[in-house]
């Protein structure tokens, strides 16, 4: 494929600029390969977070040509040929260095979601019975690799910085996985409304669009949770959704 220019964000703690690197792009290469090649050739200290290089761990999240994506799953041949490729860190989290951001906020948020609490076992040997069709829905949510790309793209966090009042789409997915778990008996609806800010979500579906695991975050996780909230409380957006849905 020949040489390609990469415009890579370099800098520390928010300060920085793009630096241009040229490197040879071979068949089947992904953006993460290019970053590694640049490290080995000319920028040994280029900070990149990655782990599995197989789309399974959710470490290598970045913004490629402005879009939140996994570097290890973005093939060079799907980007416009002959044009420079920009690679930037996720913008919704504090910057550390180069392509690395501080995502620790997400780990703190997760602790605030009430953990799994199963009903009493169904069988005397302490086990449960669940049918496959009853767990299909939850298994979709449990595909999440915690890449936080959905958090990165959501305007409530990215533009409005509601990190203290809004847990973000990843943790709505997490809450949905718990709430819809056939065995779970905990109730998380009150917090979802009061402290976790589900009301801020106005169903733009940007999160769903970027999810590398193709989880239908908005339709399958957030809207059903909002419905549960509405059953107990009031949510202006949901009122509209309900009106809309009622039309033939």
């Amino acid at each position: 494929m020949g040489e390609t220019t990469f415009r890579v964000w370099r800098g520390e703690r928010g300060k920085g600029d793009f630096a241009d690197y040229r490197t040879e792009v071979g068949e089947g290469m992904v953006v993460l390969d290019a970053m590694h090649q640049i490290q080995a050739e000319s920028a040994g200290d280029l900070a990149v977070r990655w782990n599995c290089k197989a789309g399974k761990c959710g470490s290598c999240s970045a913004e490629i040509n402005g879009k939140p994506r996994l570097m290890c799953m973005t093939r060079m041949d799907e980007l416009p040929a002959g044009e420079a490729v920009t690679v930037e860190p996720m913008r919704a989290f504090p910057h550390v260095r180069d392509l690395v951001t501080d995502v620790s906020w997400n780990f703190e948020v997760k602790k605030k979601v009430k953990p799994f609490k199963p009903r009493a076992p169904d069988a005397p040997d302490g086990t449960w019975r669940m049918q496959q069709e009853d767990v299909d829905r939850v298994q979709e949510f449990r595909k999440c690799i915690e890449c936080f790309l959905c958090q990165d793209v959501c305007h409530v966090l990215r533009d409005h910085h509601k990190h203290d009042e809004f847990i973000g789409p990843r943790f709505f997915v997490h809450s949905a996985a718990l709430e819809m778990h056939p065995l779970d008996v905990e109730d998380r609806v009150h917090e979802l409304k009061e402290t976790q800010g589900i009301g801020y979500c106005n169903i733009t579906k940007c999160c769903t669009a970027v999810c590398p695991e193709h989880i239908t975050i908005t339709d399958n996780a957030i809207i059903p949770l909002k419905e549960r909230v509405v059953d107990e409380f009031y949510d202006p957006v949901m009122k509209l959704v309900k009106l809309f849905r009622r039309k033939p």
Partner: peptide
Amino acid sequence: VRELEAWGAVFDRTPDGR
């Protein structure tokens, strides 16, 4: 493995729900 189920893991199921 059963303990994982008690902690929330959702394995694929047999027809009789195990």
